[in-house]
């Protein structure tokens, strides 16, 4: 203990962070399924990032595919076959990963930022601010999520950022509730009292004590919100509300249906994007659950 006293607070803090990161990694390593999910996620992210270097977006532009065979079955040349315009399905799925992952992550960031802001303000300030914010949150919670997203997307028009906005604005309330309940219990902790007694202002208390303590929980809920955002984007795109200039997994499925791929039994057009969605959503869900279990010991025995 005498050593500890001589360490600077900064070094001590870093040592503590390193130790908790190491502990986190140890817990994660035991969970083989979560680790596999992480590998799958990293793989998809890498594929999405390198797509512009390993392939050319113009290769599956309708104006350039006139010479390609239409409805070619999967083969060495076209890994997943081609569609009714002779576009390579494999290329579309690869580029679709970019849009689906981007929308999933961006919409989740918006959700989390909005939810955390509302949750912390309501929980920390209490009183009428809490009452008003929670009333609004309840309103948003009750409105059926998908119809609201569909109506909003139709009114705003088809674009990538509109989709992100629509998903963010319709899914923040559950995060707000989660953060608020956490803040309510944090607010009464002794170290918060201590900070207040020492003259710490609101900004200091929120920034140094409340925010760092809600972060782990928010992180886990972020990982679980991404798959929901991805599935919502998929449904919106399938209903024809996606960005018309970009290809996402849901958008491919919409085109597959329009091109009658299902009724003419061209399975290679609609199976691959669906499998990609399932893999990414499952991986995010499993990894998110594992994260939640590690960060919140109460859940460990469930």
């Amino acid at each position: 203990m005498s050593d500890l006293a001589q360490v600077s607070p900064r070094a001590f803090r870093w040592a503590r962070r390193r130790a908790s990161a190491a502990g986190f990694w140890r817990s994660l390593r035991r969970d083989k399924l979560a680790l596999t999910s992480l590998v799958v996620l990293v793989l998809f992210v890498v594929l999405a990032v390198v797509a512009p270097w390993v392939s050319n977006r113009a290769d599956f532009n309708v104006i350039n595919t006139g010479d390609n065979p239409v409805w070619a079955k999967p083969s060495g040349q076209y890994l997943l076959g081609t569609d009714n315009y002779g576009r390579s399905v494999a290329l579309q799925v690869l580029w679709g990963a970019r849009v689906s992952l981007f929308v999933g992550v961006a919409a989740t960031v918006l959700t989390i930022v909005l939810g955390t802001l509302v949750g912390i303000s309501a929980g920390f300030f209490g009183g009428w601010i809490d009452a008003v914010l929670m009333r609004i949150t309840d309103w948003f919670l009750v409105i059926p999520f998908l119809p609201f997203a569909i109506v909003l997307a139709s009114v705003l028009g088809r674009s990538l950022w509109n989709i992100v906005f629509v998903i963010g604005i319709t899914s923040w309330p559950s995060t707000a509730r989660l953060v608020r309940s956490q803040v309510l219990s944090l607010r009464e902790r002794l170290y918060v009292d201590r900070a207040r007694a020492l003259g710490g202002g609101r900004a200091h208390i929120i920034g140094r004590h409340i925010l760092p303590n809600v972060t782990p929980l928010v992180l886990a809920s972020t990982t679980l919100a991404v798959p929901i955002s991805i599935l919502t984007e998929t449904t919106l795109a399938f209903l024809g509300l996606g960005d018309p200039t970009d290809v996402s997994w849901g958008g491919i499925l919409d085109q597959a249906r329009t091109a009658a791929a299902v009724t003419t039994n061209r399975w290679w057009y609609y199976l691959p994007p669906g499998v990609a969605i399932i893999m990414v959503v499952l991986a995010f869900t499993i990894f998110g659950r594992a994260l939640e279990a590690i960060l919140d010991p109460r859940l460990r025995d469930r």
Partner: peptide, 9 residues
């Protein structure tokens, strides 16, 4: 993890 309409397809 499966979109309902994809199960349908």
């Amino acid at each position: 993890a499966m979109p309902d309409f994809w199960i349908g397809m």
